[in-house]
Design a binder for these strands. Structure first.
Length: 673
RNA sequence: GCCACCAUGGCUUAGCGGUAUAGCACCUCAUUGGUAAUGAGGAGGUCGCGAGUUCAAUUCUCGCUGGUGGCUCCA
């Protein structure tokens, strides 16, 4: 007999040799939703035989751990279906991921989304067969024999397994895969599966290696949860900033202008301006100086900074000076030669700036600086250009021209900690005001084994400690990531997820020992000696483009009143109220409200329907009653109403809501019916 | 950049080897209507661009541009 501790703390006696699954069934009953067992805290298959004392717990398919196992098993099911339909296809790897699972296949050419249906059908068919999923221990030679026709699996076996060590396979029906497990005990657990998309991936993420076909899917424990997940995905798609950007007329990208180059249309520009003004207020409060610098600079400047020619791949090509061009033409220089000269950095001209720092540095060094000038904080909504790969460009979140809410702080060694903290505070103030709580923070530290870093290691220790401290002052999850520091200093990154679960880096705070060195920056200390300042780069929101894109999704286009492109739409019921409507509109404009009047001859129902798509904070309905009482009827975004409000009262309440930057419109109390 | 898919008036979309649907938006007229579509009429497209096949291409083929999903990269 063995003693098994159950989740509620009781200890039961079982015959040795009982399986984990049998105990889970004993605890949870016959109709449980567990997919595997946790034995002494380690995830195990139900088939695991227990012959000594331990604790056992069922892992529900509704838990993070449980769904992970389901996904992994579903990946196997997918591979089984694919190999049965496409015998030449070779499964490579197929893990569970955050939002589902995928499997990469070699030799599955021309597979497209339209083929998913038949594969999914096959998966359901196999699932229904109720195959037992069986774990089998194999020796290295057995494995080599079983996977001899699959070079990818062989590569894993050769690379990952220690010499002579065996591993396990999981078998279901006539199919098996190299895997450590654990897995569900039967394919029947995998009925609620959907394949979602097809794309490609490189074997082992290496673009020099084979291109594989990757199939993505999701799986859920029950029919209901699958349905819920599917509709959540549908809902998320409606929030996509690319769709809302079009619907709400916030921005436009035109192929004649260029890929990844955002045209801010009036409504979007309004949102951006409001944000920039908001940020500017805080910059002033924190002692920043705002500056303006041009969009280009001489190549020499970027030679000094190190951007040119070393980061050519991610920059627009240089603008070659006219005289230089003419000279080269006279000399019969070919395009190939010109291109080689550019690559070598051996050319004169200008560059579209990929970063603002060199310009800001030149502002710093335009005067002799003393310790009394520090910290010097130079801020700019600075537009930069980077040559992102064409396949990477997406909406507003990945673009080729963007405006950073950039600043460079020139500080003494001793000021680093406090200034980093100041940067973090700014981020927090603004994230809080916008109700953005769903972000994570990465602290990039140096890799202790590498020598690529500039600056003395004592300095690094101090700066890294400052970053840790600053991060922990935040109310959010943060992680230390050794090896993720830039070569010139440690950094703090702010990362958010978009509606489809992709992560985007927004803000960053970076300590930099390198550029002050390269530009030979100095300040005179209290000791009368010249010292080297340290720079802090910070862009709390990254870029206005990406930030607004994320913000559109965050609010699902329903901006708080202070940010709404149009705050108020005034709708008249009939011609009789047009004059009053105009008066009210004019008064609001005078008060600085962004207001639009619809005095057309559509019915009120039609006007509401038409205006709704712009998601104004409020609509005002004006009929005879309102004209008579000098009042307005307020209609909130959700349809709730507040009628007969004196116009002046409404206006002062509205101004108050806007000035307080209230995150949610609150002029109409919620109505529960 | 790589792989797959996609591209029809402002938006959503039907369709096909014989130059093309429909809805909304837009314009005109009638209607003066209380909180998610009043009715009638009208205008608007060289079917992303360029080649090729064909008697004929929006429809087939190739190239380009742009988009979508991934991969890769990101000072």
């Amino acid at each position: 007999m063995i003693s098994v501790t159950l989740p509620d703390g009781t200890v039961n006696e079982y015959a040795a040799g009982i399986t984990a699954g049998e105990i889970v069934m004993d605890i949870e009953g016959r109709k449980h939703d567990c997919v595997a067992a946790s034995v002494d805290g380690i995830h195990k298959d139900f088939s695991t035989i227990l012959d000594s004392d331990c604790s056992v717990e069922g892992i529900s398919g509704f838990t993070d751990d449980g769904i992970h196992i389901l996904r992994h098993s579903a990946a196997h099911l997918l591979a089984q279906a694919i190999t049965s339909l496409y015998p030449d296809a070779k499964p490579t790897i197929g893990p569970a991921i955050d939002r589902g699972f995928y499997y990469d296949f070699a030799d599955l050419p021309d597979f497209s989304e339209s083929d998913l249906k038949s594969v999914q059908k096959k998966m359901h068919e196999i699932a229904r067969r109720n195959h037992t999923v069986e774990r089998v221990e194999c020796s290295e030679s057995e494995l080599s024999e079983m996977f001899s026709s699959n070079p990818y699996k062989m590569e894993i076996i050769n690379d990952k397994l220690e010499d002579g060590a065996g591993s396990t396979i999981y078998r279901q029906g006539d199919w098996y895969d190299l895997c450590l497990g654990p897995h569900v005990h039967s394919t029947a657990k995998l009925m609620h599966v959907r394949l979602t998309s097809v794309s490609s991936a490189f074997w082992r993420g290496d673009q020099n290696r084979e291109q594989l076909t990757r199939i993505y899917g999701i799986v859920e424990p029950t029919k209901e949860s699958l349905k819920a997940t599917m509709s959540a995905i549908e809902e998320a798609k409606k929030r996509d900033h690319r769709k809302l950007g079009k619907d709400l007329q916030l921005f436009h990208v035109d192929e004649d202008v260029g890929q990844g180059l955002i045209l801010w249309t009036p409504r979007g520009a309004t949102v951006r301006t409001c944000l920039q003004n908001f940020i500017s207020e805080h910059l002033t409060r924190q002692g920043y100086h705002q500056v303006y610098t041009p969009h280009i600079g001489k190549l020499d400047l970027y030679r000094t900074s190190g951007h040119f020619p070393y980061y050519q791949d991610s920059q627009y090509p240089p603008l070659v000076e006219k005289d230089m061009m003419a000279k080269l033409a006279n000399e019969g220089c070919s395009c190939g030669e010109l291109s080689n000269m550019m690559a070598a950095g051996d050319i004169e001209g200008y560059m579209l700036k990929p970063m603002n720092c060199p310009h800001h540095i030149k502002i710093y060094s335009s005067q002799a600086r003393s310790y009394r000038d520090l910290p010097l904080r130079l801020a700019e909504f600075g537009t930069v250009y980077r040559w992102e790969q064409s396949g990477e460009i997406s909406g507003m979140t990945r673009v080729r021209g963007f405006t950073q809410d950039d600043a460079h702080l020139f500080v003494t060694e001793d000021q680093i900690a406090e200034e980093v903290l100041g940067c973090i505070e700014l981020v927090q103030v603004i994230f809080k005001a916008l109700g953005m709580t769903d972000y994570r923070v990465r602290v990039g530290l140096r890799d202790p084994d590498s020598t690529k870093y500039v600056g003395a290691s004592e300095k690094w220790d101090k700066a890294e400690e400052a970053c840790r401290k600053a991060a922990s002052s935040l109310d959010v999850n943060w992680s230390e990531e050794p090896g993720e520091a830039a070569f010139y200093g440690p950094k703090i990154d702010f990362v958010v997820k978009d509606v489809i679960g992709r992560e985007w880096q927004l803000g960053t705070v970076q300590v930099d020992y390198n550029l002050p060195e390269r530009f030979d920056l100095k300040y005179k200390g209290s000791d009368g000696e010249l010292h080297r300042p340290v720079m802090i780069h910070r862009a709390p929101f990254g870029s206005m483009e990406r930030f607004c894109g994320v913000l559109i999704e965050h609010f699902a286009g329903k901006f708080p009143t202070w940010l709404a492109p149009t705050q108020i739409h005034v709708l008249t019921i009939s011609e009789k109220q047009v004059e009053y409507g105009r008066k009210v509109t004019a008064k609001m404009k005078e008060a600085g409200i962004r207001v639009e009047l619809d005095d057309g001859d559509d019915t009120i129902g039609k006007k509401i329907r038409m205006r709704r798509k712009f998601q104004p904070a409020y609509m005002l309905i004006l009929g005879d009653d309102e004209v008579e009482n000098n009042s307005v009827s307020i209609r909130a975004r959700n349809g709730d109403q507040r009628a007969g409000v004196d116009f002046d009262t409404f206006l002062s309440e509205l101004v108050e809501e806007i000035e307080s930057k209230s995150a949610t419109p609150s002029l109409v109390p919620p109505q529960n019916e």
